[in-house]
């Protein structure tokens, strides 16, 4: 017993670091402008940002308002901006942040109205989630047996990838530039959840779901992968959105501008192996699109006259065509 106690590592004053927190403060009930409040703590480098904020609230300033619950990256309540990055405060240690930035600036999440201090109104986030109909839609003619579990093969389970791990913290929604710029984009979390139901073998609404999402935001994803960086559970929403796009293209073809562009690009490269920029406009937007783009095209042509010329085919274009023939009709992940 005594030997075990000797092995305990104690945090001495020297092993702590000074952590300057600059915390966003705003209370609309009191009016005035939002401001940053500086608080300084001495903390061990591995201390989670959330622990620091709770110490501030409990020991320095009881008016600091924040949302949290489990402190263990399970409940998804404490997403916020840590030095401008969308993060769960409970699983972001203070040490590396102080080392990189000299301080820790804390803001509420982006893309949602601020209620008070670090608490945002998550209603828009949840509304978009609900629009995905995030539940099994069963075929009424094939009811699930009441007393036996439904079996799934390992390959079927694998198709969910990491989407069931999502804790709906909203970090991806906060990090997403498409959400920021366009109210028509449902956000990474909603689309990752949609993917989870699209690949569920028990769901009967796959085609309807894909059709609906094609016209309600799927093709507004920028594939910037900022959601994948922000996600504390490694759900990788940007990659599942890519999967949704491919599933939609393969099942429904070029019904929308977005899918037409993907298919147009694919066909464009089959011809010469290299991009024919001018032709791509026609392939995606049609003749009307070409006419609409004419004034801008002329402007560009004056500086870059070669845009009207089709590039020569690459050497070995026959190889490219054969690769297309070998792989074009096979559907991904449908076995």
């Amino acid at each position: 017993m005594a030997a075990a106690e000797e092995k305990l590592t104690k945090f001495t004053e020297e092993s702590l670091v000074t952590v300057p927190f600059d915390v966003y403060r705003y209370d609309p009930a009191k009016g005035g402008e939002p401001r940053y409040q500086r608080y300084e703590l001495r903390l061990a480098p591995h201390t989670p940002v959330l622990t620091g904020l709770l110490r501030i609230r409990d020991e320095i300033d009881p008016t600091l308002t924040l949302r949290y619950s489990c402190r263990s990256a399970i409940c998804g309540s404490c997403a916020m901006l840590v030095n401008s990055k969308s993060r769960l405060a409970c699983r972001t240690p203070v040490g590396p942040e102080v080392q990189a930035h000299g301080r820790i600036v804390i803001d509420p999440m982006r893309n949602q109205p601020i209620l008070r201090d670090l608490v945002v109104d998550q209603q828009p986030f949840w509304t978009r989630y609900e629009q995905m109909e995030p539940h099994l839609i069963l075929d009424p003619s094939k009811p699930m047996p009441a007393d036996t579990p439904t079996r799934m093969s390992p390959a079927q389970v694998e198709r969910f990838r990491d989407t069931p791990r999502c804790i709906a913290c909203g970090a991806c929604y906060s990090a997403c530039p498409a959400v920021e710029a366009d109210p028509g984009f449902p956000g990474p979390m909603a689309l990752a959840k949609l993917y989870r139901f699209v690949v569920d073998p028990r769901d009967s609404a796959t085609q309807g779901r894909l059709k609906k999402i094609q016209t309600s935001g799927l093709w507004l994803c920028l594939r910037c992968h900022l959601c994948t960086e922000a996600c504390p559970k490694d759900v990788r929403p940007s990659e599942r959105i890519r999967d949704l796009k491919e599933l939609a293209v393969q099942a429904q073809g070029g019904t929308e501008l977005g899918s037409r562009h993907a298919i147009g690009f694919l066909n464009n490269i089959e011809e010469r192996g290299t991009l024919n920029e001018l032709k791509l406009v026609r392939q995606t937007a049609g003749v009307g699109g070409v006419l609409g783009a004419l004034p801008q095209g002329l402007r560009i042509w004056r500086k870059k006259p070669e845009i009207t010329k089709a590039p020569p085919p690459i050497e070995g274009i026959d190889q490219v065509k054969k690769i297309y023939q070998a792989l074009e009709d096979k559907k991904e992940g449908q076995e």
Binding site: R242, Q250, A262, I263, F265, L266, E328, E332
Partner: peptide
């Protein structure tokens, strides 16, 4: 192309 056919 990745959006239309990943393996291709």
């Amino acid at each position: 192309i990745d959006e239309a056919n990943e393996v291709l």
